[in-house]
């Protein structure tokens, strides 16, 4: 099912995320990531399947997306520009549609230096805006050079935006380009400051494209500090890190739920959906999804 259909029906769209394993998952082996996703299937519309996230080599996002589909789950196939040139990207989009994928999220991709193959050569032949434009072309029945396809793709095209970005106007400029290039829905980078998110939402009122608030579950104070120091584009307020640190480690999960609940109550009314990045705590998603839906009503 294309996510765009759910947005059109004014459903509050909940998605979660799975990271493919670093290994072969043939014949159902090594597929715990699918089992984790399956446990929350009734509570979400679809699952992002990350593409060698953080530039760490893993099972491909297309193969993992197909495995999800075979397991009856709805994948959002993430595709980045880091590892493929324009021929490979277009070919993979054709492959994705051929294999039954309905949703694709077009990203630039983390730089190789961030991952486990830092000596590799980054491709970045095209960027995420161009990729959206190219994917739209495939939907219209032609490749990026204008050559006609024997059959067009039919993919819902998603994109990302980072409300933490400074200067925000530059990020919005790129967001507008993505919309003009064919983006049909957005997922945001993780944001932990409702005021900052509200300022972003006010700026994008009227863009006419649904936005899902991105929420990475904060699992420990250490994780908050790590994200501030090592993950570009995410800012965790010190007050939240301190709040997390105010409880013993066995209380982190309850505190994480409490913080996420608070954020969702404030932010859900501003958006058309939530994108959870639970990092192994998928069992919190059902309750949080319910909180978000209630808050959005």
């Amino acid at each position: 099912m294309k996510l765009t259909q759910a947005f059109k029906k004014k459903e509050f769209v909940i998605t979660s995320e799975v990271g493919p394993v670093k290994g072969c998952a043939r014949n159902g082996h090594n597929a715990a990531f699918i089992a984790e996703a399956a446990t929350i299937q009734p509570y979400v519309h679809a699952f992002n399947v990350t593409d060698n996230q953080s530039a760490v080599m893993r099972l491909g996002s297309l193969a993992a997306s197909v495995l999800l589909k075979q397991a009856g789950l709805e994948p959002i196939y993430q595709i980045t520009c880091r590892d493929r040139n324009r021929i490979a990207l277009q070919s993979d989009l054709l492959s994705a549609c051929t294999l039954g994928i309905d949703n694709v999220l077009c990203l630039t991709g983390d730089h190789l230096k961030m991952g486990d193959h830092p000596t590799g050569k980054g491709v970045f032949d095209i960027d995420s805006v161009q990729l959206l434009d190219i994917a739209r072309g495939l939907n219209q029945g032609h490749d990026m050079m204008g050559h006609e396809l024997t059959a067009a793709t039919d993919l819902a095209l998603g994109a990302v935006v980072n409300p933490n970005f400074q200067p925000l106007d530059l990020q919005l400029l790129k967001m507008e380009k993505k919309i003009a290039a064919g983006a049909e829905f957005f997922q945001t980078q993780a944001v932990y400051d409702p005021k900052l998110f509200e300022a972003f939402v006010r700026k994008v009122e009227g863009v006419g494209v649904p936005i899902q608030f991105g929420l990475v579950l904060l699992k420990s104070p250490k994780m908050g500090t790590f994200m501030n120091e090592r993950i570009s584009g995410i800012k965790v307020p010190q007050a939240l890190i301190d709040e997390m640190a105010s409880v013993p480690p066995e209380g982190y999960k309850d505190k994480s739920l409490e913080i996420a609940t608070r954020l969702l109550k404030e932010i859900s009314p501003m958006v058309q959906g939530i994108h959870f990045m639970p990092l192994g705590w998928s069992d919190l998603v059902p309750q949080l999804a319910s909180t978000a839906r209630d808050a959005a009503r």
């Binding site: 630039t108 983390d110 230096k113 530059l170």
Partner: peptide, 30 residues
């Protein structure tokens, strides 16, 4: 990343995700 249509999401405080000592080219351009 040689991006042509604006910055990636990895830019933070005007610096590049690859090297925090390096300016984000797109913030400079902007």
């Amino acid at each position: 990343k040689g991006l042509l249509n604006g910055p990636c999401g990895g830019s933070e405080d005007g610096k590049c995700e690859v090297d925090p000592a390096r300016d984000c080219a797109w913030v400079l351009i902007y």
